[in-house]
Design a protein around this nucleic acid. Structure first.
Length: 498
RNA sequence: GCCCCCAUUGUCUAGCGGCCUAGGACGUGGCCCUCUCAAGGCCAAAACAGGGGUUCGAGUCCCCUUGGGGGCACCA
């Protein structure tokens, strides 16, 4: 579709009723990518017409999450724009005005049915195995009578006068023409009794007024999409290009992400909420790469993408309409990949906060030296703390199970340890290559295997079963520290074994 | 119950009628390398849901079945 190369205007329109999650982040990403690719605009619009469901701070959190992921919007509630305001709660009168227009043109009507009656109707229809829709009795109330009742203060809503016959075709970019029998559609409420517009009206009005060219949203909207088409038609407006994305399924592939699933995931060190990603040690680059590929692909082998790559290569046409299961194992893989390409300085900087959270004071210079040796052995940034904390503390806790050299008793370990100590003391050049040479030389002289000899030293310098490579670690620690730890370790053995 | 969408290995996917004895990646298993953990290298198992058409030829187009998913609020 050549249209795609013309600048698009797309909006990401979340409602501040919760936190930004994987699914909505992906929608925002696709919006962002196509806007950047075509040189168009990425607009942030807050859909907060449901005043009861607002969550305190959600809007701020949402914006900061979006920015963390690397998506800046061109127009939005905080930065304004030509079509401001971008918060629907500040556009109430606009919706009322357009609602009234529909009444005048005969496409909408006032309904005075009480919620109780509606519930009863719904129940009745369900019992008769019919679609649980409104029975449209208010549709026949003459407009003059309706206005009198409103003037008299009667509670009312505004409903769309959905055609009863015929078919409505929604042109979806990914699925082609989707047809709906109008008789299966409801007379949806446009404006609630409290005067606030509902999504159907508000979104249509805003999309038109804000000159949105492409509406990219979740396929959960597919069932009501004919109403949105019909509303545009009623106003005589051109419809935007509809792009209904697949739904993100839970890891099992059975059903979409639910609150319950989110809780279970957090028990496994995962989260579907963007706000949690940083704390869990994930890179925004990894989130973007991973999420981009859930429902989109470039070719049959490329899978590493930076935001810049995505902007260059993204296209709406290659979107996959089939639902996709969320695969957190693959997320870990992408995180590793993106950690690996970070520069040492960059990685060091990103690592620092995790050590701080763990209560470990770090040194920037040392952290930069550690970066290259932990780089390819951590999955998440916080993994580095466990692996490298011994670089920043003198309090090494030895384990009685591991401190003795494999195949040796306490006496033997101490004897060899002392010989190592003397040898290292006399070592002039303290670097990885020389350490490697001298230590291995001793190992052979002692007739020990690497896992015995080097394993012992690993425990000595780190107190850990797993550590970055030994000689590199020794070089970074420095001669003084290593000798000190060896002495401490030998003392530990003397004190704990007889 | 009704409406709508979807359908390639366990998962994400490539495939837009012949290039497919179906490609890549994650994961899984094995081997190699190896100071732990990783990384890396090599190899393996693993899929076109089923049935009808259309066509010289179908994973690719059409229909049905089945399966999965989504929706049916004075939420978005």
């Amino acid at each position: 579709m050549t249209q795609e190369f013309k600048p698009v205007r797309v909006r990401f329109a979340p409602s501040p009723t919760g936190y930004l999650h994987l699914g909505s982040a992906r929608t925002a990403l696709y919006d962002y990518l196509i806007a950047r690719k075509t040189g168009g605009q990425f607009i942030l619009r807050i859909e907060d017409t449901d005043r009861k469901r607002l969550v305190d701070g959600a809007e701020e959190e949402l914006m900061s999450n979006l920015r963390w992921l690397g998506m800046e919007w061109d127009e939005g509630p905080d930065i304004g724009g030509h079509y401001a305001p971008y918060r629907q709660s500040e556009r109430k009168e606009i919706y009322q005005e357009y609602g009234e227009k529909l009444v005048e043109s005969g496409f909408a009507y006032y309904c005075f049915c009480t919620p109780q009656r509606l519930a009863a109707v719904r129940e009745e229809k369900q019992k008769k195995k019919e679609p649980p829709h409104y029975d449209r009795i208010c549709r026949s109330i003459p407009i003059e009578e309706a206005r009198e009742r409103i003037a008299a203060g009667e509670s009312h809503v505004l409903r769309f006068k959905t055609p009863i016959e015929g078919t409505t075709i929604v042109k979806d970019l990914l699925r082609g023409d989707i047809s709906f029998e109008n008789k299966t559609l409801d007379d949806y409420i446009l404006i609630k009794s409290d005067g606030w517009a509902l999504y159907h009206l508000a979104a249509a009005v805003d999309d038109h007024l804000m000159k949105i060219t492409h509406v990219v949203r979740s396929s959960e909207w597919l069932p009501t999409s004919p109403i949105h088409s019909l509303i545009h038609q009623a106003f005589g407006w051109d419809e935007p290009v509809w792009v209904h994305l697949s739904v993100l399924l839970k890891p099992s592939g059975k059903g979409k992400m639910s609150k319950r699933e989110a809780v279970e995931l957090s028990g496994e060190g995962h989260s579907i909420f963007i706000k949690d990603m940083q704390g869990l040690g994930y890179l925004p680059e990894a989130v973007v790469n991973w999420v981009a590929l859930m429902g989109w692909s470039y070719d049959d082998h490329t899978e590493f993408f930076s935001m810049q790559d995505l902007i260059e290569k993204f296209s709406l046409e290659k979107l996959n309409p089939a639902p996709a299961a969320t695969n957190f194992t693959k997320f870990d893989y992408f995180n590793k990949l993106h950690i690996k390409v970070l520069s040492d300085a960059d990685l060091a900087e990103r690592l620092q906060p995790y050590f701080k959270t763990a209560g470990i004071q770090t040194d920037k210079k040392v952290l930069e030296k550690i970066a290259p040796i932990v780089k390819e052995r951590i999955v998440t940034l916080d993994d580095a703390v466990e692996m490298a904390k011994f670089f920043f503390t003198d309090k090494i806790t030895y384990s009685k199970e591991r401190i003795l050299m494999e195949g040796c008793d306490a006496k033997g370990t101490i004897e060899i340890g002392r010989r190592i100590l003397e040898e290292l003391k006399s070592l002039k050049e303290w670097n990885t290559a020389d350490l490697d040479l001298i230590v291995r030389g001793m190992m052979e002289k002692e007739g020990k295997e690497p896992k015995q000899f080097l394993g012992f030293l690993r425990e000595v310098i780190s107190g850990q079963k797993i550590s970055p490579p030994l000689f590199e670690s020794m070089e970074i620690l420095g001669k003084e520290v290593v000798l000190k730890r060896l002495e401490n370790a030998l003392r530990f053995i003397e004190e704990n074994f007889d």
